[in-house]
Design a protein around this nucleic acid. Structure first.
Lengths: 381, 381
DNA sequence: ACCTGTGGCTAAAGCGCTATAGTAACTCGT
DNA sequence: ACGAGTTACTATAGCGCTTTAGCCACAGGT
């Protein structure tokens, strides 16, 4: 019983931390054996391992992340940095939902998400650099992909595991997930064409982003394939840009009969302009959005949109990133290179009142409750 | 030059990490001296300190958070756990904006935010416990305050610095920030009363939350003071609850002429019910919300709401929490107790079309762009 | 001259864990 | 019966930092 003299503290929260040394003492082995046991590594007999695990459980031992990190183990954290004004998280529904999806799977895997908001893309790279050199994260997710994004080569050089959100195509050696914007564009254009629209305009978002370009291109291409007249109207950022662009489009000699907006926020802004101009949606002008959200659902008429389920998007991104991190760790042991894999989410079209066939438009025929989307919104390919 | 043989690697990212030992060697002192110098502690002369800092800068040294944490220094991370479905982050605009505010000041102070989504309040406490025993966070922010919230005593027992978001009143020994819901209620009720409404109903949110109770009480009290008839209609959670509750209110013999909703999401749901019932807002029924958001601004008519600026709320919360953490560290050195301080945000009323005096209601008279609130929305008291 | 400070630093002991070299005991094959 | 090969551990050296005790030189007071 003399060995019990220094029994580790239990129960009440304030006690000393219990360490592997405590477990080792109780189990009559060294801390090294405990480490092997709790990490599922070979080197201890099954019997001993079981005994050690039992004691660990009993003592309510929790590994110290700091100690692990210091000794070279993964830190169970992934990072994401946003080079945008903080408000974006609240203003653009996409981000909140995306982060929710990330959190969901990360939490489940005992990972945590570290976020940082910075001013410029350069600061973003600097943050990656610091996170890496401080070993603060095991990997990062890269959002708001730009053309010739400087972050890609920077991350490759650092050798920090990263998952690119956006596409399509390969980003250097980095794996990615993306929503197939070409497909989304076709869905939208085809839908409007079927309704009989022949002059379709697109109010495009900020063209520093890669997905904007992708949409630009496929929009023009699809319109041409279908023999439609297409107008691509760059609108810069946010609601005010969309208002100006919409007004601009309406002032044309032959204004379009259908408007395609790059985001829900922009679509609403556009609707307000239409309203003020005395034009009814969808009777006079049809409206559709690349981005679904409660905003789009809640508007009257509810807005036809691409349901890419930002939450699902976040989940998939997190899944992929964890795979990449795991693979990296494997690889360090084996040595294979591994191809950067790209995974696409297939967008679906959710038809709502804003593109209803010409009825009356007051409350569209495909009216629905704000919580129930018309179709499953996305799926992994 | 022999001493230079082991010169620390610079430039290209892949090199070995530079540690205080490297700096010490270059400066001709021990690592202890470097530690003192970089942490601004007494024990080195100003000249030496300057020299050490210079070298650190030159070598681009970054402290290792893991090593620091292991040695007992703060980990520069604060935690927040949400016992809600992940979707809430996207669905309720408040959260996105609140987190944005938190991030903003935390990032600036070089802190990071760790978030976790769990199923139950018990799991939340368990998470706090683990974060504490793993020394993963320096402090936490507690949201979604409930009646007799079990997290308060749990955190007090742990001795983990915490900041409670919600109030009013003290929560054990924990400091808090809150939005003055009593004041908000008076603003709303008074506003509706001034417009001539005498039968006001409130569609109340989930009553496990403390702020719901606070609103319940002050709503009843203020109505009585003004001699108004008040109806308090509990509606449970989210949009569907609000729909049911609104329908219920409309089916009364003498339906209310003004509706007060606990959130933007609920207000919109309520508006849809009104619309379907053929009632115009604000001509037939006035609508106001306790919660502002792009949703409320984007609706037609735009909805009168309490602007508590969730982002600002987040900023204040982060500020306070950092103060608490700093104070805690001081106190460990001195020994004072320190009063739990409470800070209130004064809400302001943003009048919009949904409570316009009886004109036509199609587009309210206090119409505004979606980005420009009518008044500054909140302020620290 | 002698003790007492005191500023400025060093030496060294951790923090809790992982990783690796080493060892003791226990098979085998021949 | 002997070296080789396993298996199951132990001992120990870090990881990069903080912190405390201790040391030395030099200042001042008496």
């Amino acid at each position: 019983m003399a060995a019990e003299q220094r029994t580790p503290p239990r129960g009440s929260g304030r006690g000393q931390r219990v360490t592997i040394a405590d477990i080792a003492r109780r189990a009559g082995v060294t801390s090294a054996a405990v480490s092997l046991a709790v990490n599922g590594r070979p080197g201890v007999s099954d019997a001993t391992r079981e005994r050690i695990l039992e004691i660990a459980r009993e003592l309510r031992w929790e590994p110290s992340p700091a100690a692990r990190a210091l000794a070279g183990a993964p830190v169970l954290t992934v990072g994401m940095v946003l080079a945008r004004p903080a408000e974006i998280l609240g203003a653009e529904a996409f981000f909140g939902a995306f982060v929710a999806g990330l959190q969901e799977v990360l939490s489940r895997e005992d990972y945590s998400l570290q976020m940082k908001i910075v001013e410029t893309p350069e600061a973003e790279i600097e943050t990656f650099r610091r996170w890496f050199s401080q070993r603060r994260v095991d990997g990062v997710v890269v959002v708001d992909l730009r053309l010739d994004d400087a972050r890609i080569p920077a991350l490759e050089e650092l050798g920090l595991p990263a998952l690119v959100v956006g596409g399509p195509g390969h980003h250097g050696s980095l794996p990615s997930v993306y929503v197939d914007d070409a497909h989304a564009t076709r869905l939208l254009v085809d839908h409007l064409a079927e309704l009989g629209h022949t002059r379709i305009a697109r109010v495009a978002g900020d063209d520093v982003f890669l997905h904007t370009h992708q949409r630009d291109r496929t929009f023009a291409a699809r319109c041409e394939e279908l023999g439609l007249e297409c107008l691509n109207q760059p609108a810069g950022f946010g609601a005010s840009g969309a208002e100006v662009a919409t007004a601009e489009l309406l002032s044309r000699e032959e204004p379009p009969s259908a408007l395609l907006f790059d985001s829900d926020e922009m679509a609403l802004a556009g609707c307000h302009v239409l309203e003020q101009a005395g034009l009814a949606v969808p009777a006079d002008v049809a409206v559709a959005s690349y981005e679904d959200s409660p905003l789009a659902r809640g508007h009257r008429p509810p807005i036809t949109a691409i349901g890419r389920s930002a939450t699902e998007y976040g989940r998939v991104a997190a899944d992929r990133l964890l795979e990449v991190i795991a693979a990296r760790r494997e690889r360090r042991e084996t040595g294979g290179a591994g191809e950067p894999e790209t995974r696409a989410l297939i967008p679906e079209l959710i038809v709502r009142g804003s593109t209803a066939p010409q009825l009356d438009g007051a409350t569209g025929p495909s009216e629905e409750g704000p919580e129930r989307p018309a179709t499953r919104s996305s799926r992994t390919a």
